[in-house]
Computed example of a mutant assay.
Amino acid sequence: MLFNTFVFQVGLLSLLLQRCYPLLLSAALYLPLSIALHCWILNLRWLDSNRFVWTDGLQALFVFQRLGAVLYYYLYKRMAEFLGDPRLYEDSVWLRNAFARARQ
Score class of each variant (00 low, 15 high):
1 M>P: 07
3 F>R: 11
4 N>W: 06
6 F>R: 07
6 F>A: 01
7 V>R: 02
9 Q>N: 12
10 V>I: 13
11 G>D: 05
12 L>S: 11
14 S>F: 00
18 Q>H: 00
20 C>G: 00
21 Y>N: 06
22 P>E: 01
23 L>G: 04
23 L>P: 01
26 S>F: 01
29 L>V: 15
32 P>R: 02
34 S>I: 05
34 S>F: 05
35 I>Q: 07
35 I>M: 09
36 A>C: 13
36 A>H: 07
37 L>M: 10
37 L>K: 09
37 L>I: 13
38 H>N: 13
38 H>D: 08
38 H>R: 13
39 C>R: 14
49 S>M: 12
49 S>D: 14
50 N>A: 13
50 N>S: 15
51 R>T: 06
51 R>S: 05
52 F>M: 09
55 T>L: 13
58 L>G: 09
59 Q>E: 12
60 A>V: 05
62 F>L: 15
64 F>E: 10
65 Q>H: 15
65 Q>F: 14
67 L>A: 15
67 L>D: 09
73 Y>N: 14
74 Y>N: 05
80 A>M: 12
82 F>A: 02
82 F>P: 02
83 L>N: 01
84 G>F: 01
84 G>D: 07
84 G>Y: 02
85 D>P: 04
86 P>Y: 06
89 Y>M: 07
89 Y>D: 00
91 D>V: 12
94 W>Y: 11
97 N>D: 08
99 F>L: 15
100 A>I: 00
101 R>I: 01
102 A>L: 09
102 A>G: 04
103 R>N: 11
104 Q>N: 11
